[in-house]
Amino acid sequence: MDIVLDLCDEYILDKVWAKLVPLSAFASSYASVNSTLAIPVVHSTSAWSQMVAHLPHPPIPMDSIASLYSSTVTTATPIAHLSAWPRDYIPRQLVSLCALTLVGVHILYFLFAWLSYKFIFNHDMMRHPRFLKNQIKLEIQCSLRAFPVMMLLTLPWFQAEVMGYSKLYDGLDTYGYFYLVASVPLPCISRITSGSVRRVPAVEA
């Protein structure tokens, strides 16, 4: 999930968060920095920016603003196009993961449910007397009501993975080829050995 979140941040969510929580809403936090960096500050007076200004946000140090400004915008682009919530800010990660999980589960559900209904489901069952009226609609509604609960149950695991607690790695230089090859059969061996152990009933004296 960390790779999915990183890709979505790169191509979509950075722009979305720049609109939702713009850095310009916290202009007073970096007013002193602007004199040093000569960044075109835009003080937004919209109702949304005034409401967002009351949200908590991490400190905005000078080097972060300078690096963000130099790497993401040009000198003609105002700093309002940046977000006050950086990628590593946990509230932003939680909201982004919630949105991605809900969108993903809806896509997976309707895609495979349609394929199953189209090519696997026996349509003759719909003529069965015990087949409820609008049963397909009721099943879809039941699934949709369950998605938010499923999202909340999986959210802590996704957040832990994004924060690095899963110990996953994407480079062979971390542990080498031996660990990559050995990590495949090791779980299988563990399952075989645990399954081969039989429980011996206790013998009463």
Rank of each mutant, 00 (worst) to 15 (best):
K118L: 04
A205G: 12
L155I: 03
P91A: 01
I189T: 11
P148T: 04
V203Y: 02
R130D: 12
L94M: 10
I79V: 14
E10N: 15
L138E: 11
M125G: 07
V21P: 01
R145M: 02
V149K: 08
V184K: 09
S28A: 11
D124Q: 12
L20I: 15
M163K: 07
C142E: 06
L108W: 08
F110W: 14
I107D: 02
H43I: 15
P59T: 00
L168W: 07
F121S: 03
D2Y: 03
L186E: 02
L153I: 15
L152N: 06
P58D: 02
S190T: 15
L13S: 02
Y11M: 07
K15W: 10
V103P: 00
D2G: 09
S29I: 00
K167W: 00
Y30I: 09
A113R: 13
S183H: 07
R130A: 13
N122Y: 09
S196Q: 11
M62I: 15
W157H: 12
S166P: 09
A31C: 07
P40K: 13
F119N: 11
S83L: 04
A205I: 05
P61S: 05
H123C: 03
L102D: 01
A202Q: 14
W17A: 12
M125V: 11
R130Y: 06
V181Q: 07
R127C: 05
P201M: 05
A25E: 06
A80Q: 11
L13E: 08
E161L: 09
I189Q: 03
L68G: 10
Y89I: 03
P185T: 01
D173G: 06
L168E: 13
F158I: 02
L108P: 00
I140M: 10
A38M: 04
Y89M: 05
M125W: 13
P86I: 12
S49R: 00
I189Y: 04
M62W: 07
V149Q: 08
I90C: 07
T77V: 14
Q93D: 00
S71E: 06
S35L: 06
L172I: 13
V197K: 10
M62Q: 13
S24A: 07
P201Q: 05
Q159V: 15
N134S: 12
Y30S: 00
S70W: 05
V73T: 11
H123V: 01
S29A: 13
L111F: 12
A146T: 10
V105T: 13
L152D: 01
S24Q: 02
V197H: 10
L168I: 01
Y179Q: 15
G164L: 05
P187A: 01
L82H: 04
E161F: 03
R199W: 08
P86A: 09
S67L: 15
K133P: 04
I120G: 09
S96K: 00
L153M: 14
T45L: 07
L144I: 10
I107N: 04
P148I: 06
I12A: 15
V73N: 00
P22L: 05
V16G: 02
V181G: 03
L68S: 10
S46I: 03
L82K: 04
L7N: 12
V41D: 05
I90S: 05
P78V: 04
Q135C: 09
Y89F: 10
P78K: 04
A38R: 11
F178W: 13
I79D: 00
S35C: 04
V4Y: 04
